[in-house]
Design a protein around this nucleic acid. Structure first.
Length: 700
DNA sequence: CAGACGACATTTTTT
DNA sequence: ATGTCGTCTG
């Protein structure tokens, strides 16, 4: 049956026709450009908002303004980069403007696509719903497919599963065919193009027959839903009277298409972003999407926000200089009227990584003495492992911290083990999950596990392992597992209860598998149960964990009332959109930022520069850029490093140089340096700030 | 065929 | 410093 929808447009939804909204509040709180953006509610609008120019504020007020003009919250869709961003924005909107704002639909492209796909899954041929694959799930399937195609036995080294996953995913995100991805980004695997192509097809087929969707499929299938079902497209699009998209510079081509599809009926769409902060091209993001936005909509209005409210003038001067080194120029020039002067940003050359860590730890404590809360400071890095050394130092000084970015909670081996059992409950034919659960058992290896899973695939009742055709010797080994699964599938218990039971069963296995460090892992399992408390349904919990992965080290750090809020450690990517009183950038080295990976490609170098720009523009009052002069690489000897090329040529009047001095070899006090711009060397290692008393400070 | 051991490469960033 | 892959042994 086909049904046609014809939408009667409401020509009455312009705020101008609702004089009831009092503009006073908006006029007094917003500058002219922001106000313009907030009150322009019809048609297409692009807001190019530089760092710290009140982008979030503008979005928030606009949401409130729409509500006050009589738009129902449910008719507004706010797409943001993370769900956390959406939540924060809506919470703010509801306190600042109107409680109804909390009811606005919001989330990431992926989570919105997921919601819609669930709603219409039958129309796409998923009769019994579908399961979301996170990255490692998808790698596991690729691995399975690869083995079944016998590609692992090639004479030459076949790309490993994560590389293959990357190739396939870039294809989806950049809308390229596999051949082109390999030719463009993986030329060293060109001789495997045939095989990779076969594998990609087999992977797609596997997902199809098992009703599985990976991250990329969520977007592409959603697009397919809209383009191949006119009635659904009309219905969804009609329900979105106002569409707002944040961080537009980080959308990829599919998302860009989705935006145009979603606003088809009403045409009210606002994109917000900053081309100078595009940092996700590895995921198919293209900052041309934001530049080309006006071309794609007739009569698109463009508003620029250039007045910065976040950073001091001196920080801004440095960041402006940094971004101007881009080969592809940006047109914005940020300025401040509200925060003239300020401290000079500091560039800190540390003798080695340990000194760098000590400097940061000591400076953090000093700032705290000055009254800056730990959570008002952040240490940012290019890659999550740049901070290992620092983490040791912080732990030693008992400075509490949380780390964002890096390994995700569900990626830890022991969590994956528990998840595998839960997935079997959800889908008794989940071969990958079975495989993982079986391999944990004593006496069962890859071959036997495979024999079991072959049987599981066609079994009437997969939990009835005794009935399988595998040798009784091995069946005996699976007794405990079989009992567990039967008891779990029996009742409809809440997710947390199920996890608790799995954990109980798993603990002995955990202790055997990780006899060195199982106590830490047991804590994680407890946290897992705690996380599950808010999710009655196991299915919801797993979907949420896939769509909004929890940062590993941020788990279990919810502080009790009297605990001090922890210092923030974060990758630059995860720091997007946030701000702190003081920001430290770690390891500002050539080869780290820019990553050695990017050197040699102008476009990639530009992206690294933007990344540095994002890091530096997070700072409100204080900014410290540090790097070690000496570093050690793997088993090789220590070697001398170069500071990042992006900070090597900063004019001396834009920053202050700090040289670290070993307290044990304190030089005689220097006379004030001739240049008023350079400060006397900072002394390090003599701090009494250490909460543990300082006596266990290492000698310098 | 399970499981241990050793060689080897391999290092971003995230929904 | 780690994980992945291949090989060897019992």
């Amino acid at each position: 049956m086909s049904q046609k929808f014809y939408v009667i447009k409401d020509d009455n939804d312009s705020a101008a026709t609702h004089p009831a909204v009092s503009l006073e509040k908006y006029q007094s709180e917003l500058n002219a450009s922001q106000l313009d953006a907030v009150t322009t509610t019809r048609g297409a609008l692009l807001v190019v908002a530089g760092a710290g120019t009140g982008k979030t504020k503008t979005l928030t007020y606009r949401a409130g303004y729409l509500i006050e003009s009589g738009i129902a919250a449910a008719d507004i869709l706010l797409l943001t980069f993370t769900r956390r961003a959406a939540r924060e924005m809506l919470a703010r909107a509801s306190t600042l403007c109107d409680v109804r704002a909390a009811a606005i639909e919001g989330g990431t492209f992926h989570s919105y696509a997921h919601r819609m796909l669930r709603q219409y899954s039958n129309r796409l041929g998923f009769e019994r719903g579908f399961t979301i694959l996170d990255q490692s799930d998808s790698e596991d399937i690729i691995d399975l497919v690869r083995t079944s195609l016998n590609f692992h036995k090639k004479e030459k080294r076949f790309p490993k599963k994560s590389t293959l996953q990357n190739i396939i995913s870039s294809g989806a995100n950049k809308q390229l065919v596999v051949n082109d991805v390999v030719a463009l980004s993986y030329p060293h695997f060109a001789h495997f193009t045939e095989e990779i192509l076969l594998l990609a097809t087999a992977y797609r087929d596997y997902k199809q027959t098992n009703a599985l969707l990976d991250y990329d499929d969520l977007l592409t299938e959603f697009k397919r839903l809209l383009t191949s079902h006119t009635d659904i497209h009309e219905k969804i699009s009609a329900s979105i009277r106002h569409l707002m998209v944040d961080e537009y510079q980080d959308t990829n081509l599919v998302q860009d298409d989705l935006v145009r599809l979603l606003c088809k009926v009403h045409g009210n769409v606002m994109a917000v972003g900053d081309d100078a902060q595009s940092i996700y091209s590895f995921r198919g993001a293209n900052f041309r999407n934001i530049l080309d936005f006006p071309k794609k909509f007739a009569d698109c209005k463009v508003i620029k926000l250039e007045e910065n409210y976040r950073s001091t003038e001196r920080i801004l001067s440095l960041t402006n200089f940094v971004i101007n080194q881009a080969t592809e120029k940006f047109t914005k020039h940020l300025f401040t009227r509200t925060k003239p002067g300020g401290e000079f940003p500091a560039i800190v050359a540390a003798p080695d990584e340990r000194f760098q860590s000590k400097f940061i730890a000591q400076m953090v404590l000093e700032l705290r003495e000055e009254g800056v809360g730990l959570d008002k400071m952040a240490v940012l890095m290019r890659s999550s492992r740049n901070s290992f050394e620092l983490e040791l130092e912080l732990a030693k000084r008992k400075i509490p911290f949380v780390k964002y970015g890096g390994q995700k909670f569900t990626e830890a081996a022991h969590i994956k083990d528990v998840l595998a059992h839960l997935k079997i409950i959800l889908n008794p034919k989940d071969v990958i999950a079975w495989n993982r659960a079986l391999l944990l058992l004593e006496g069962i290896g890859p071959k036997t596990a495979q024999d079991f899973t072959t049987w599981v695939k066609q079994a009437q009742n997969p939990y009835n392992i005794e009935a399988s055709d595998v040798s009784p010797k091995y069946i005996a080994a699976t007794r405990g597992l079989a009992e567990l699964l039967k008891s779990l599938s029996a009742g409809k218990e809440p997710a947390a209860k199920l996890i608790e039971k799995v954990v109980q069963y798993y603990l002995p296995l955990l202790r055997a598998k990780y006899f060195e460090d199982y106590p830490k892992r047991e804590k994680d399992l407890e946290n897992f149960i705690a996380i599950a408390q808010n999710h009655p349904s196991l299915e919801d919990l797993l979907a949420e964990l896939a769509l909004e992965p929890v940062d590993f080290s941020a788990v279990g750090t919810e502080r009790s009332v009297d605990d001090e809020a922890p210092l923030v450690l974060s990758t630059i990517h995860s720091a997007k959109g946030l701000e702190w009183h003081s920001v430290f950038l770690l390891d500002a080295l050539d080869g780290v930022i820019p990553s050695s990976y990017a050197v040699g490609d102008a476009a990639e170098l530009d992206e690294e520069l933007r990344l540095l720009y994002v890091a530096l523009t997070r700072a409100k009052e204080r900014l410290y850029i540090s790097y070690p002069i000496l570093s050690y690489q793997r088993a090789i000897q220590d070697y001398l490093t170069n500071p990042s090329r992006f900070i090597a040529n900063v004019p001396p009047d834009l920053f202050e140089r700090i040289t670290l001095i070993d307290a044990r070899q304190m030089p005689p006090p220097l006379p004030q340096s001739a240049s008023q711009l350079s400060s006397p060397p900072k002394q390090l290692g003599h701090s009494d700030n250490s909460p543990s008393g300082g006596s266990d400070d290492l000698p310098f």
